[in-house]
Design a protein around this nucleic acid. Sequence first.
DNA 1: ACCGGCGCCTGACAACTGTCATGGCCGAGC
DNA 2: GCTCGGCCATGACAGTTGTCAGGCGCCGGT
Lengths: 203, 203
Amino acid sequence: MVTIRVLLADDQALVRGALAALLALEHDLEVVAEVGRGDQVVEAARSSGAEVCLIDVEMPGADGIEATRSVRSALPEVRVLIVTTFGRPGYLRRALEAGASGFVVKDTPASELAEAVRRVHAGLRVVDPVLAAESLAEGPNPLTERERAVLRCAREGLRVAEIASRVHLSQGTVRNYLSSAIGKVGAATSAQAAQVAEERGWL
Amino acid sequence: MVTIRVLLADDQALVRGALAALLALEHDLEVVAEVGRGDQVVEAARSSGAEVCLIDVEMPGADGIEATRSVRSALPEVRVLIVTTFGRPGYLRRALEAGASGFVVKDTPASELAEAVRRVHAGLRVVDPVLAAESLAEGPNPLTERERAVLRCAREGLRVAEIASRVHLSQGTVRNYLSSAIGKVGAATSAQAAQVAEERGWL
DNA sequence: ACCGGCGCCTGACAACTGTCATGGCCGAGC
DNA sequence: GCTCGGCCATGACAGTTGTCAGGCGCCGGT
């Protein structure tokens, strides 16, 4: 019997180990590598000969989306299955654009994970149907690059003056971008706009 | 050989299942119950006869701290081991006050989890040493109940007027509490104060 | 060459926020 | 009883935000 070679990327060692234990219960899966940083995925995938990479979105080094892009460009025959805590529609969209074959949220039943890995390995797509619907309903990210930049700053609680100096724009311009972002996400303040944008995966 | 009966509480099914698989590798541990909500812990612990409860802090229904308190008061002989994603010093403090016997963050190595369960079962305390040091260095939560209430609202991006109506205070009073909270955490805006307080586990 | 759109900026205004000083009310401790 | 400390409130002030109406320069298309 041919086993599927799996790489695990998650920054939480406990979760990583636990997922490894879970997958090890399946006779046709073999965890051949584990990493805790996004920027170690490609190298580990290459040296271990992984066929499927299970990647968490939230990771230090490079986030799961970037890691996916790197894997797909360096090792096109390797499939990527994103596993994430947050079912943010924007993440799904970006993950698929980056070349992921599947997207699973962490509150799907454990029993389905192995099956998802098999499907992805077989060249199929695996996407959480609820999330797919939300993603469609919500439409694409309406924010421009600049709006996202100022919102990322606003999320940290920075004030306009600080944002302006960080992104090298005038205060007035920053306020204009914030204002238009507030309008687009339907918020009342920039802090709230940053929150909404974040939870939609638009940041 | 006597096995230790373990209950698992985590809202993410995948993580829960994975932890179960991990613990099942140990001959002396047996996962006798799994729940996904904080308010189901006591009942499940009682009916399954669990001896150690492994509880995540972030959960719907009742958070891990509340769940711990409930377990300790309903079933005093049951030990609680908190497992959490976020190593927030304030969480540690509150968990111990609520009666937890141990506190482990999710990026500890998987191999240590089983050992932590055994220690807790034996009546020992298990505490992440790094976190314990941080907790001591930071001191106790300096915020009053009211300050925490307004900060919890501010964290959602609400404006003073909205916070005032939600907590049934005048706008001026809300601003006073926000101002004093801003001073205590060393922030510049209420949004930032809310963030800092949250990441310290003070909210 | 002209036009429209876009990115960046300005200036002005009303609204909101953060700070401070102050005062009334109440329960705890001497 | 008196004072002290919390809690809640008010009013006033300077500073910051959110909004709007523009202006300038730079492309890409016609």
